[in-house]
């Protein structure tokens, strides 16, 4: 039961408290770029969840069974980014061939994810920062992806309001968007401390 509890804590804290976009600033580019419409925001979010979990499932064994035993830990960055890039390519090809309908809705977002720092970030964090085991890593990646989706969807709602409002000339466009992101991020502050006391 304890291990299940710890998984729930990991999931909730990665979705709400340590939200990758709003408190750790990873994956800001797609967050600002793709959040204009609800459709594209949720499509991108789903694609990120998918790639994050896949990437973790592949990079965790590589680190623990290939790199560390052979003293190649320093190759982590190069190997991980190549694995993620290859994985994204293969996923896109496989989706195109076998599940064309899913490829149509998620496919366009996949190539962008290669250079999304949230994906590389979560695979490295699982190993260096948290030292999670395999199952914990998968759950953490799932949580980070869900947190990304949540932030994107919330923010796309907020952005449609900004589009309609009157803003001073030099704040139009990106500055107003960033200030709006600041408010969303402030809202997520309210979750701090919730998870620690969840099972206390």
């Amino acid at each position: 039961m304890d291990s299940f509890k710890s998984l729930v804590v990991i999931l909730l804290s990665s979705v709400l408290v340590n939200n990758y976009v709003l408190s750790r600033f990873l994956g800001i580019c797609p967050f600002l770029g793709v959040s204009k419409k609800l459709n594209s925001a949720s499509g991108m979010g789903l694609a990120v969840i998918f790639v994050m979990v896949m990437a973790t499932a592949v990079t965790w064994p590589i680190q623990h069974y290939l790199l560390t035993p052979n003293g190649l830990g320093y190759m982590q960055t190069i190997v991980f980014i190549l694995v993620i890039a290859a994985l994204v390519q293969f996923t896109e090809m496989a989706l195109k061939k076998f599940v064309p309908s899913l490829h149509k809705s998620l496919g366009v977002y996949l190539p962008l994810i290669t250079t999304n720092c949230a994906v590389l970030g979560v695979t490295i964090d699982n190993i260096n920062e948290h030292n999670f085991n395999f199952l914990q890593s998968i759950v953490n990646s799932l949580g980070c992806g869900l947190g990304f989706l949540l932030a994107m969807v919330l923010f796309s709602g907020m952005r449609s309001k900004i589009e309609e409002s009157e803003i001073p000339e030099s704040f139009k466009g990106l500055p107003a968007t960033l200030i709006a992101a600041s408010f969303v991020s402030l809202a997520f502050f309210g979750f701090a401390g919730i998870v620690d006391n969840l099972f206390a």
């Binding site: 709003l22 500055p175 600041s182």
Partner: peptide
């Protein structure tokens, strides 16, 4: 904190 980062960056770009 995180929200301050977004805020300062936005104002600087403007």
């Amino acid at each position: 904190k995180a929200p301050g980062g977004f805020l300062v960056y936005g104002i600087m770009i403007a």
